[in-house]
Amino acid sequence: MKTRIDTRFEQLKIEGRPGLVTFVMAGDPNLEVSQEILNGLPVAGADLIEIGMPFSDPMADGPSIQLAGQRALKGGQTLTKTLAMVAEFRKLNNETPIILMGYYNPIYIYGNEKFLKDANAAGVDGLIIVDLPPEADDELCIPAMDYNINFIRLATPTTDAERLPKVLENTSGFLYYVSITGITGAAAPDPDRVGKAIAAIKAKTDIPVAVGFGVRTAEQAADLGKGADGVVVGSALVSVILDNLDSDGNPKAGTARAVHALVEDLASGVRSVKH
């Protein structure tokens, strides 16, 4: 059965442009503002939404997303609340795909089958679990198929021709190409090198390829979007939240608006591209 992710990429193909994939951390800076941010993303121009599931030990994330996760956990965010946020969003929007991104342990503790069942019921379309490589597909990736949830795999600059088939094997929805070796929010990627890498992947698969890590501006999004089906922006959006905290760490009025403003700008970037 098609997921919202499949449908969205089909629409984007017809429109002839890359999609904007926005990442926000569930519960950052608090549950209420986080929900407000999430609810307003589609109108601001997000084509797909990644929601971070905060984890105490985010080993693949840079300082921006680490801090976002810490803010969320400090505010009492849990996996149960994150699923409830998705269900709330689905009351307003039944088209925009939602992908949960994070680390395996909170899901493992929640219970894999229970999680997949509850995620499906809440309206989740895909999962990106950073520390579940293809070697561990039996744990969550394959069971997720029974719940019509895409398991989106990361390919990186270290994914060579020998490794790529393994990465593609059970990937569905789209493939997330990590533009740099490193953590989220680090150095800006080189569009030429990324373009070549994506072309090499596209020669091996028909599934859409989105590119992310280090994308901060509309220009970068447009540049990288030329050869890709989607562009992911995370740390830059999360940084807007940090910039809008008062001295006590509480969000100022208009925080959600500020995030949406950056999304609008980024959306204009991807919408300027014609495939």
Partner: peptide, 11 residues
């Protein structure tokens, strides 16, 4: 097991 990010898998 081996629960690591894809970047590290080849290493």
């Amino acid at each position: 097991g081996r629960y690591v990010a894809e970047t590290l898998m080849p290493l």
